[in-house]
Design a protein around this nucleic acid. Structure first.
Lengths: 191, 191
DNA sequence: ATCATTCTTGACATGATTGTCAATCTTGAC
DNA sequence: GTCAAGATTGACAATCATGTCAAGAATGAT
């Protein structure tokens, strides 16, 4: 192959993810991406087409990492402990960095009105898979609930995680978020 | 007073609220506001200063309406029924219109990173007052829980409402949202 | 009826962002 | 070493949004 790419694609996408995570799809500019990656705007257009294409790649990377981390956190025989781990992971994920980056999925979901079908679909995919992950965890607990109940509850839990992401943006601290999550888990698990 | 304003201020703010609700603070342009209100851009600048000033007025109107409706929905002796009414109100509020407008507070909260201190403060105020409203409702229930527990639970409930707003943006239907809210209320009230 | 004040209007300057392109450079393949 | 495919670069055109301003219009007070 002749005329070889001068930059590492994985590295560029990882850096782009960081930019999108901090600024959001809408607010991050090609200028920002060029500055952060050290790759010129023109080269990015040549390599990916447009901003959304870069976003989709970055988001896929993010979604992969996120769901893997969620699966790992939920992998505990005791459902209550699994949920606590899960919420710890979620909250750290959104309060990390300075300033905190928040939750990329939630931010992207809120831009729904101005996003493309593909972007919206990605968001739905992540939330759907997260629901499944949690539903399976709940179902797997020793004969405690029927599958339909587990699915319903899983959706409630996913919804609550989205709420935490909003509260983080509204200025609630990591400690406050953890407090709410603990109260939620206690209430839901009937402790 | 000489040189009298040619438009009805309340009407303009109400129309501006509609525009901001549909498009968000960031995405609504002065052009949009001018077109919707029938007042020229220049006149709006003259009357209010800038877009954010208009937004703050519109948001205050929205917050007033919203909190009043919430207070009304929560005004029921049976806490469980009060919460069901409350969630019904919340969900109708965000799924109303076509396309649905979503929740303005949540959308605004997500723009936190690019908003002014004043806008952020407004969002915090609304959420704080909502927490208080719910906390009082929970405390007022016949000797069921201590004030501290009520406050903690109130915050969880507010967080869950934010989650519903995100799920709405992600494409969940009114019916699905109502289903989740019902499951949530049942779980939290220990039914 | 006149006047001073305030509003209205349309034009203007500015800056940001997107996307395109031709010229130039690089480099693997032969 | 030469070559052609593909990458890079900087400039360019086109939009769009914000905010400002001077000129003109409207009107309550006198």
């Amino acid at each position: 192959m002749v005329g070889v790419r001068q930059f590492d694609e994985d590295e560029v996408i990882a850096t782009a993810l960081d930019v999108f995570w901090r600024k959001g799809l809408h607010d991050a500019t090609m200028q920002d991406l060029a500055a952060a990656t050290g790759v010129q705007r023109g080269s990015l257009y040549n390599a990916y087409g447009d901003k959304e294409a870069i976003f989709l790649r970055a988001f896929d990377q993010y979604a992969g990492q996120f769901l893997e981390a969620a699966g790992h956190a939920l992998a505990h025989a005791d459902t209550t402990i699994a949920l606590r781990n899960f919420f710890d992971m979620i909250i750290v994920n959104m309060t990390d960095g300075s300033p905190a980056r928040g939750c990329l999925t939630t931010r992207t979901a809120l831009d729904a009105a101005i996003s493309s079908t593909e972007v919206r679909q990605r968001v739905r995919d992540v939330l759907g898979r997260l629901e499944q992950l949690i539903g399976r965890t709940l179902s797997a607990a020793p004969g405690r609930r029927r599958a339909a109940d587990a699915d319903r509850l899983a959706r409630v839990i996913v919804t609550f995680t989205r709420g935490l992401a909003v509260m983080e943006r509204a200025g609630y601290s990591r400690k406050q978020l953890k407090g709410s999550a603990a109260t939620f888990v206690d209430a839901v698990m009937g402790t």
